[in-house]
Design a protein around this nucleic acid. Sequence first.
RNA 1: GGGCCUGUAGCCUAGCCUGGAAGGGCGUCUGGCUUCUAACCAGAAGAUCCAGGGUUCGAAUCCCUGCAGGCCCGCCA
Length: 559
Amino acid sequence: MSQTVSKAIEDAIQSTSNTLQNGGYPKLPIDRNPPMGDFAIICFPASKVLKKNPNEISEEISKKIKHSNLISFATNVKGYCNVNINWNTLAKDVIYELKNPNYGTSNNEPEKILIEHTSANPTGPFHMGRARNPIIGDSIARLLSYYGHNVDTEYYVNDTGRQAATLAYGLSQHKTKGKGKVDHRLVECYRKASEDLKNDQEIKDKVYNKMELIESGDKTALNEVKDSSKKMLKGMKESLKELGAEAENYYHESDLIATGKVEKIIEKLKESKICKEEKGAYYLDLKEKNIAGRNQKFFFTRENGLSLYTTRDIAYHIEKFKNYNRAINILGEDHKLQSRLLEIALEELDSKIPEPVFYSFVNLPGGKMSTRAGRVVYLDDIMKEITKLASEKLSENKLDKSMKEQLARQIGIGALRYNILKVQAEKGFTFNVEEALNLQGDSAPFSMYSHARASAILRNYGNKIPDIESIQPLEEGEIKLLRTLSKWPSIIEKSVTNLSIHHIPNYIHSLSSDFNQFYRDCPVINSNNLEFRINLVFCSKKILNEGLSILGIKAPERM
RNA sequence: GGGCCUGUAGCCUAGCCUGGAAGGGCGUCUGGCUUCUAACCAGAAGAUCCAGGGUUCGAAUCCCUGCAGGCCCGCCA
């Protein structure tokens, strides 16, 4: 909440409760986020004591609360006394606060934070099931960085293990055809290799031998898997770039082995009190750790002494905390147990632990996305389709051609990101192409359009935004917009604290909606309240722009 | 067998942490562009908040018991 407004509300609450106390009323609960007005006095608990029904009490109270510098008016609605603070006396100070570039950001010491996101196995192009990860990860990174933290983003490349060895084998044995995007071409080699493995024991042995070489640190083998993964990754990176969600850094799992970091971790884990051994394989005994399920042994080496995926992940996190004081991981819900095991291991090593953000899988109307069943929707195809749709909508527009192309991409990609970000991450959703392609209502273009409208007003106005000298009595539409604008910092705060991004699209939508109502009811140019209104437009545009940019969506000047 | 997540109008969803008046959007119906951009706005219809119990003046929200769906419980990644 804006500090000016929050102080005004607390003062008003204090003032009314004094009034009520003097009038012999008991202390009543306050709702600071009421459906109408700025705060509400809940009259129900007084009913028994005063032997009156809540509605009567609220009616009395509403009449007792007089207009003042603090309070504008109070009304009774079904036992709730809704109090409206005096926005006229506040408006100038609120606008001043809103215009501050630091509005919505933190005063606290910035933290060094690493956000690991995407980290999809480099075995083929992104499908929509995975798309939630980069979009959420990238936006949380933008959010924390907006708030004032020092944020870096990283993609952990799983380029060792069975699938990496399979891919390397596939690339060495099978030719690619056509000129398509590289990941879409190479995935055929991977598919064929997987088939080979299934059908031919000799090939399977060969690949498994390669795997052992990789894990034991053989430089040639490590280079081979790293190279083939990089080839696949090249195509995948293009998709992320188009999405506007590419991580800044790529950390290769193979490097953890090559540099001997994994080995070191294995030695350290063996010193743990809960470490046990079975036929040469080492594990942490989880009996005392409250881990649900059948298996209470967390193996971190094989019988041959070599590392497992999780072992390398432990080493990776030890590396992370050398440079960062917080590590945030964006993970699919299937990694929940995995993530818990990682925490236990890190605690055994006296390390900090990462903060996971989980999201549910994206399904298709027909069921789960499956490469094998051929039920896949590729991210690339969706991006193309939604951009095309945006482009069609722009066809009657008067803007010049290159401008339109750029806009179509901004709108298309923005709409896609928004569609995914507006839903709480842990809620599973079925990806509905129709719904995602709908560019009306609660969608990115709605807010982008409000932003363009605000820009148009400022363009027409043409002058520098003035300081407010005088102000006319505010209309409902102005108050509503100002009230919403004043809530921005608390939305940011909530989002940052819970690492939940969906509050931002939610807020941006109501801000846009309030702006559109203001736009209808309150003409700016030629208004006798021009000074204030042009400031209000300026602030709306500013917050819309900042909100959209947290979501990774461009805010256009025209559309 | 066990654990975690989710369940809100025909469909999608916010609110759940911190109990107080069920918000949006899509779709449907009605109306609005000589007035700062109609990708907009106004209005209408549409909700046993999964079910049952408990706590409370008051429960979508907290507690218990179920039900349904998702995910997980490998010396795979």
